[in-house]
Nucleic acid binder design. Sequence first.
DNA 1: TTTCGGTATTACGTCTACGTACTAAATGCA
DNA 2: TGCATTTAGTACGTAGACGTAATACCGAAA
Lengths: 160, 160
Amino acid sequence: MSNGHEIAMAIRRAYLSMHRQADAILAPYGVTANQYVILALLAERDQVPQRDLVERAASDPNTIRPVLMTLERKGLVTRKRDPNDGRARCVGLSKKGRRVFEQLQRDSQPFRDRLMAALDPEDAGSFAQYLLQVQTAITQRSSVTTSVTSFSGSSSEDKQ
Amino acid sequence: MSNGHEIAMAIRRAYLSMHRQADAILAPYGVTANQYVILALLAERDQVPQRDLVERAASDPNTIRPVLMTLERKGLVTRKRDPNDGRARCVGLSKKGRRVFEQLQRDSQPFRDRLMAALDPEDAGSFAQYLLQVQTAITQRSSVTTSVTSFSGSSSEDKQ
DNA sequence: TTTCGGTATTACGTCTACGTACTAAATGCA
DNA sequence: TGCATTTAGTACGTAGACGTAATACCGAAA
């Protein structure tokens, strides 16, 4: 009984629960889960444009920017201008940023261990693969533009 | 190479992509993905307290409330007081709400079909099962309360 | 080189997501 | 019965997520 709706709801519940828990674990350090994600991406590869982080996080420029600005204000991240491209930023981890991230990573390891404990080790790979396939399949551009009526209005008809 | 971090990131990317796409598909109807989720839960079982929706969505009372108020303003949802419990609300779908949900459900079916097409049908069940196990494992209450120093401040040390 | 489409970022507004704190009602139990 | 504890919902504040639109800049074609 796993139709599309059930799968979607399961992804949603898993993500929300995970995100909430991660936020709680990181809160004592004054860092949010989203900020941690950005730090992790930068620790993996930095001196990149914001666009690169947007892609790697499957996120959005408008979401990434304020997070980066917060991290910059905390002194964890640098956002230099790219000398080779006047439009772009060159985002990097500061020394402090790297040090902080490494501690966060250490201290949050039990969290990831708990996550992994929920999975059969030999299935973790295909589980991740499925998640990627879902992401890819869903991200397809649908060009169907049927005209519909919006329900946004607070019409008074049909009270019950 | 699927460690805890990779799994977490994969869940995150899948969810964000899915949510964004769902929002785009529902936007012409003036309904958000979150609102759709609530409508779907109510279509499945309504005349329930808000708490019930919070649990079924693995969400939070503070998140559910404004969504319900928006849906109520649109005339899709009713929030009567529970006569048997002065604290509780009794949330239900209005006739219009049910009708609207049924149309949204129909028109968004291609979206869920695309999602399912990414999965081997015989693995969909275990995929959903894994998502649930992740959610359950992660939701455990951790009682470790180590004292840590917050990095929140914008200290000027360690500039790079 | 000039123009023009594509690109990186930013500005702004709306809708979550959720912690903390508070109220009031319900409930357990002495 | 009387009060402490739990529970449903709410108020408020911060941080995200993302659409739309604007700006500056890049690169390629004419």
